[in-house]
Amino acid sequence: MEKSNEEKQLRPGLWATVNERYPGSMITKTDFIPLAKLIKPLAESRLSFVSTSGVQLRGTLPFDTAHPIGDYTFRAVPSNSKTSDLEIHQLKYPTAGAERDLNVIYPIERMQELAAEKIIGELAPNFYSFIGYNMDAERLERTLAETIADAVEAEKPDVVLLAPA
């Protein structure tokens, strides 16, 4: 994908602000994070989705929300899943609304509808989910982020929707 100019990056002072407001709590990120431009129409693009919502297939090992340092695993969630096949294991954000309608935090049905209407070309076979409560920022970046990136890349999406919870 084509990299955008540094001057056009959104919120260029984000990491400095985070570290100033929450000393010792977050990673120090000085690297430039390039934005990527869409290189073909959305209607011809394959979409993937990465979420920190803690959504996973029912019956699979729950995310480890008890561990004091965090859970550095992720779950692949088939993009054709029904919401009734999914559940949330996440301690740190209010899940009551998402329990009523998962789409408020994990809009899988909306994306399925957009793909069916050909507004989006197609969905990648899997979406990806993990929990955001992780104290070891280096491990998060070195293992979890890299592994998810590899898994996403292997399915050759043109667009990836990133959604924090």
Partner: peptide
């Protein structure tokens, strides 16, 4: 804590 039925957390375990 869950057994106490006084769950203060936003999410679930």
């Amino acid at each position: 804590v869950a057994r106490s039925n006084e769950w203060i957390h936003d999410g679930k375990i």
